[in-house]
Design a protein around this nucleic acid. Structure first.
Lengths: 324, 324
DNA sequence: CGAACGCATGTGAACGTGCACATGCGCATC
DNA sequence: GATGCGCATGTGCACGTTCACATGCGTTCG
């Protein structure tokens, strides 16, 4: 007990909390003793009395993928800098039981804020059911008002990608979308459809995928049996990779026969063959903003981080004019 | 307070801890009230009185990469199943300050066990300096006795890859290694060197990389200016991807002119062009074993999880016999 | 010169849980 | 029928911290 070394426990507490009325020499003396004893304040005791856990929760699906993993890492870093801890719950399947389990695990440590990187709608239903009542953030662009949310302009990114293909001269463009319970997937699909109709290009129904290269490969094989298109916009880079694999397997050339665009700009995308044209998302920035939003909601001060993050089109070798 | 509903707080406590001497009807009554009130036991209070946090720490570098991310996810899942929480600290650079910061962050929540997925040696020095005294696990194959450790046989995996190339007839093989402060990288390099000398093949000095595709690309360009080799064994799949990019840029064919082997078998590897021959590691299993080991060390019972995980060579299109 | 104020520090209670011990009750044993 | 034992439950304290309040001392001001 550091307080054995000179002062009362309350003075120690004041030192820890940077109380203004402290004689510098007293403060220093306490600090010295703390250093000597390797004193560590007890987080549990503090949480107990303040009833603040200073913990943020992340509910994550697909946390092994580059995008989610990057956001998680950025969230952790930003939270740590702000003096918060982070606890993650990964859900493997997106069924209700799994979601509920993850949320309960987070609730059990009385998190003060929640970031959801996962299928959306069910999560919030479950959240309501469990009557977990914390501010939360999600990457979103829905109409629904889901409380404080962070707007990353997935729609704009998807429009960028689509416009690029149209400007190159493509008129038969498929979209390989992500799972529709992901808000990002839905937004990218909407961006694709919006741009297509804005430019008066006939649209085909998007194909619903699962984010994996494996799915992209099989979807590509399927599509190529008909081959009524000259370009595909995939909702992430992994699916784009699978598509490219299928296209090459069919003996076709990219981009001469088929142009392909991805989404995310994972670090490997620049080294695919051919290097992938894609939409860059700043996952780290997303993570940082999530934390800023949450902590803003917790320390109820300014909350004007609502400006959206603008994605960027990175043009590489996988797209070109169609050859007729 | 649930205890207002009939019984003493101690009885509630007994229900929570599955005490044997409880009349079933009493127990049920308490459970009913708990359900009705949505009662959640307070983790902080419990941690305070038991002085057990039930929290495992992960110190992670490169947590956005597939391998580390997979292990982290598996650790989280396994820990959750065992009733533990997980807290992650990501370190961006591997300098001492960053490591110390991460470890202090973990120590501040009095973690009971630590998994290190990061440059190794400095971590343990720092650990000692901060006199953090918890059991820890690391993926390792060093000679050093670093306490309870998990042995994943990286050496065997690397030998597998190297032997595959030698058996195909390659005699001029380079190794693109990972950063040498990573134990995995060191072990894979050792496996490569061991196998080369066991098979009496002349060895060239390994090139030290940084795990990224970008590095693989530039290393490949560099190597190709001389081109005194027919095969390269890269220490992970990302670097292998970069290498393949460089080889193609030079107008060469894979595997006719150059064979390439990776390590990890990330999900995308099967869809690279050509599909990558690589060594599969079961990251999820690694994560699970980490937790088993740590919890075994905490609840001091059996500790015989020491059998190592055997990696597997996956032969795909990126390797073939050399053409002379 | 005394009252009032502000600063630096101390005192005691409280947070919600688990542990050690105490209590009361029913049943078996002699 | 008294003694003792085991089961089911209750009582009080402790964990380490913060909060509200109390104390003592020096300074200012009417």
């Amino acid at each position: 007990m550091a307080r054995l070394a000179g002062v009362s426990h309350q003075t120690v507490s004041r030192v820890l909390n940077h109380h203004p009325s402290l004689r510098p020499e007293t403060k220093q003396r306490v600090l010295d003793v703390m250093a000597e004893l390797q004193y560590k304040p007890n987080r549990a005791a503090r949480a107990l009395v303040t009833s603040r856990s200073r913990t943020l929760g992340i509910l994550a699906a697909s946390s092994t993928q580059y995008g989610p993993a990057s956001s998680i890492a950025a969230i952790e870093t930003a939270a740590r800098a702000a003096g918060y801890w982070v606890s993650t719950a990964n859900i493997e399947s997106s069924d209700a039981a799994s979601i509920a389990d993850g949320l309960e695990h987070l609730a059990a440590q009385s998190i003060e804020g929640l970031v959801v990187i996962a299928p959306q709608v069910r999560v919030f239903d479950t959240l309501a059911q469990l009557s977990i009542d914390v501010p939360f953030v999600t990457l979103q662009t829905t109409d629904r008002d889901l409380g404080p949310t962070l707007s990353v302009d997935q729609i704009a990114g998807a429009r960028l990608a689509t416009r690029h293909l149209i400007e190159l001269g493509h008129r038969n463009i498929y979209h390989l979308a992500g799972p529709q319970d992901w808000i990002e997937a839905e937004a990218r699909m909407r961006g694709f459809l919006d741009e297509m109709s804005a430019q008066d290009v006939a649209t085909t129904a998007p194909i619903l995928g699962d984010w994996t290269a494996e799915f992209g490969y099989y979807a590509g094989r399927e599509l190529l049996t008909v081959r009524d298109f000259t370009a595909i916009f995939a909702s992430n880079d992994q699916m784009a990779l699978g598509l490219m694999h299928a296209v090459r397997d069919a003996g076709l050339d990219i981009p001469r026969d088929v142009s392909i665009v991805g989404f995310d700009d994972i670090p490997e995308a620049a080294h695919f063959w051919p290097p992938l044209t894609t939409v860059r998302q700043d996952f780290a920035e997303i993570g940082r903003r999530c934390v800023a939003l949450l902590i803003g909601a917790l320390d109820p001060s300014a909350l004007e981080h609502r400006q959206s993050i603008v994605p960027e089109l990175i043009v590489r070798g996988s797209t070109g004019a169609p050859s007729f």
